[in-house]
Simulated scan of single mutants.
Amino acid sequence: MNTDEIQDHDTAAGPGDDLTDAAWRVEAASLALVEMTLNAAAEHGDLSVTRLRVLLAVDRHGPLNLSTLAAHLSMSVSATGRLVARLDAAGLLARLLSPHSRREISIDVTPLGHRAIGRLRAARRRHITSTLKRLPPGTRQVLARALLEFTAAAQTDESPPPTGPEAA
Rank of each mutant, 00 (worst) to 15 (best):
M1W: 15
T3R: 11
D4Y: 07
I6V: 12
D8N: 13
D8M: 09
D10L: 15
A12Q: 12
A13G: 05
G16T: 05
D21W: 14
A28Q: 06
V34K: 10
E35V: 01
T37D: 09
L38F: 05
L38W: 05
N39Q: 12
N39P: 04
A40R: 05
A41P: 00
A41L: 14
L47H: 05
L47T: 00
V49G: 01
V49S: 04
V54E: 00
L55K: 02
L56H: 09
D59A: 03
D59M: 00
H61Y: 09
H61W: 07
G62I: 00
L64R: 11
L66R: 14
L69H: 06
L73N: 05
S74R: 14
M75D: 01
A79F: 06
T80H: 11
T80Q: 10
G81W: 08
L83V: 00
V84T: 00
A85T: 06
A85V: 03
R86F: 03
R86M: 03
R86N: 01
D88W: 04
L92K: 03
L93H: 03
A94N: 05
A94S: 11
R95K: 14
L97P: 14
L97Y: 10
P99D: 11
S101I: 03
S101T: 07
R102Q: 14
R103P: 01
I105G: 04
S106F: 12
I107C: 07
D108H: 10
D108T: 13
D108W: 11
L112H: 13
R115Q: 06
R115N: 02
A116Y: 06
G118Y: 09
R121A: 02
R121Q: 04
R121P: 00
A122H: 10
A122L: 12
A123N: 11
R124D: 00
R125L: 15
R126E: 15
I128S: 07
T129N: 13
S130K: 13
T139R: 15
Q141A: 13
A144W: 09
R145G: 00
E149G: 02
E149A: 10
E149V: 13
F150R: 11
T151F: 05
A152P: 02
A153G: 12
E158F: 12
G164W: 15
P165R: 06
E166T: 15
A167L: 11
A168K: 10
